[in-house]
Amino acid sequence: MENYIVVNQCLFVKMPKELDHHETDRIRSDMDGYFITHPIRHVAFDFSETEFIDSSGIGLIMGRYEKLHVAGGKIFVMGVIPSIRRVLAMSGVTRLVYIKESERDVFASIQ
């Protein structure tokens, strides 16, 4: 399955089952590769298969936010289950990102 896809200058990233430091290091360097080869304004993280997140995942989202928001880019988070939403809320990251149900909702807000 495709883990990364760029549509309308938005990089869609499929998050792994467990988003920890080991996984975030890998995802961060993959994303940096896309930033070099594609003109990317927004990022949409797909959490629909993710069951675990810790502060490393929060750091990834915050870091990408810092990178994109100065140029008006948005961070979208899709498919979060309640336990993950709780961690996002505790860290305050829910104030920086747009929580969406599906890819269609993301497309609607970047048109």
Partner: peptide, 14 residues
Amino acid sequence: ELERSGMGFSFMEA
């Protein structure tokens, strides 16, 4: 510089 959020201890406490 490693994009750490500084939330680790806060999560352990919570």
